[in-house]
Design a binder for these strands. Structure first.
Length: 419
DNA sequence: ACTCCACCGGAATACTTGGCGT
DNA sequence: ACGCCAAGTATTCCGGTGGAGT
């Protein structure tokens, strides 16, 4: 039996695991029909050759924004094939395509693919870089005119674009219609951040948000439906214990109503059951999955921390190691100075340490609480609430924090220090 | 060359309650 | 018994700096 054979044997759990991934695009979107209808009714104008209103869509992660827009977009392109008006939709993720140049170039590139003119080999491919933005802009206009029809530009995670390169791009795009004769441009902006309009020029904002749409988070029963539907495609029949899906839904609903989170939970539960060679996914797997996802993200978070934060965290681990369950900022500071000195890294001041500590607290690695001790001043108490040995492991992966160098720190000395 | 941002620290100000004075 | 004070840090405000990006 080959090395991988045994991993292929267990076919009892998943039918198609891909269905549970973020990248999967479902055909049915439960509980989003009103939103889909709204978007469709706005975009329908393009089938008559009119310019659809620009739309701004808000909603937290995992509320189905992107999925709905993509769905409507596909339908629109399909419908336009039966009319004389060509409608094209281009979907840009602004987290990746985050400068004006890249946005324009990407749109142009996409247009060239739609350009049905007989290619004479002189098509001007816009290079990835090098042209002045004006020229790309002109070229884009020419392309739009030659393709004609209606172009719907979806800017996903538009807040990222505005944050990184300002609203100039949006200003140009919203104005482009006035320079066009045979074609129309409509923009759909998708944002996770409800306050991102603060950074926008009022003119851009009013033009961009001719229509606004908010995607509310899913509640537990809705998540249940979603998981149910996907589960049918993803899992073999009958392998899921009845309470599993409601539990996943409930846990995710507690979080933020994030469907992505719920699907992760279900997928990881299935994977854990598979790994344990069990024939059914049970409640205990969901609980394990919940824990796994949590620690995984914690590990990811800790391992990407800047060095100084790691040193601070390390100091706290040392304090915990010598038997202190709860430590004060003063103690952490003293131990930190000791550790940082030993490690030959810059020793930051109190001021900075308090910042790092509150950052750690924000990330959920530690808990903190400010307490006033009357005559004895005011301090911040902090403590861990998860298995600290995982944090030890992660930290010791950092070369500078390998245990060998730190074992030199005499625990007795530390104990004396915090007294 | 210039701008922006992350990082840093100094100084001022805020906060809270046990202890002390009355 | 009551109320103000002081300790000791949290927190805020602000200005400087070096590096990355353009």
């Amino acid at each position: 039996m080959g090395l991988f054979q045994k991993y292929l044997v267990n076919k009892n759990i998943f039918k198609n695991r891909e269905v549970l991934r973020h990248s999967y695009r479902p055909n049915i979107l439960p509980h989003r029909q009103p939103e889909i209808n709204t978007i469709a009714s706005i975009l329908a104008a393009s089938l008559k050759g009119e310019t659809p209103s620009n739309i701004l869509i808000y909603g937290k992660t995992g509320t189905g924004k992107t999925a709905c827009v993509r769905y409507v977009a596909d339908e629109l392109e399909k419908a336009s094939q039966e009319t004389v008006i060509p409608c094209h939709v281009i979907h840009l993720n602004c987290e990746v395509i985050d400068t004006q140049y890249r946005v324009l170039a990407q749109i142009a590139k996409n247009l060239e693919d739609h350009d049905e003119r007989p290619s004479d080999g002189t098509r001007s491919n816009i290079p990835f870089t090098g042209w002045p933005t004006d020229q790309v802009y002109m070229e884009l206009k020419n392309l739009l005119e030659s393709v004609g029809g209606v172009m719907v530009i979806v800017l996903d995670e538009i807040d990222k674009l505005v944050k990184k390169s300002g609203d100039e791009t949006l200003y140009n795009l919203t104005r482009i219609n006035s320079d066009l004769k045979d074609s129309k441009v409509s923009i759909i902006g998708i944002s996770n951040d409800l306050r991102f309009t603060d950074f926008l020029d009022p003119r851009v904002l009013s033009s961009l948000s001719e229509e606004e749409l908010v995607f509310p988070p899913y509640n537990a029963p809705q998540l249940c439906d979603i998981l149910q539907k996907r589960g049918e495609d993803a899992f073999m029949e009958g392998v899921i214990d009845p309470p599993v899906i409601p539990l996943c839904a409930a846990l995710a609903a507690q979080e933020h109503g994030d469907a992505r989170r719920a699907l992760d939970l279900l997928r990881v539960s299935g994977e854990l059951a598979e790994r344990e060679d069990e024939s059914r996914v049970a409640e205990k797997h969901v609980k394990m999955a919940q824990e796994k996802i949590e620690t995984d993200s914690m590990i990811e978070c800790v391992s990407t921390l800047p060095t100084q934060s790691k040193v601070v965290l390390y100091s706290m681990l040392l304090l915990e190691h010598i038997g202190k369950k709860i430590f004060t900022s003063g103690e952490v500071l003293q131990v930190y100075r000791e550790v940082a000195g030993t490690l030959d890294v810059d020793v930051l001041t109190n001021r900075r340490i308090t910042d790092l500590v509150s950052e750690l607290s924000m990330l959920g690695v530690i808990n903190t609480r400010v307490v006033s001790k009357g005559r004895y001043g005011r301090t911040k108490e902090m403590w861990f609430d998860m298995m600290t040995n995982r944090i030890w492991e992660v930290l010791s992966k950092d070369q500078r924090l390998s245990r060998d160098t730190l074992i030199q720190l005499d625990t007795n000395r530390l104990k004396a220090l915090v007294r």
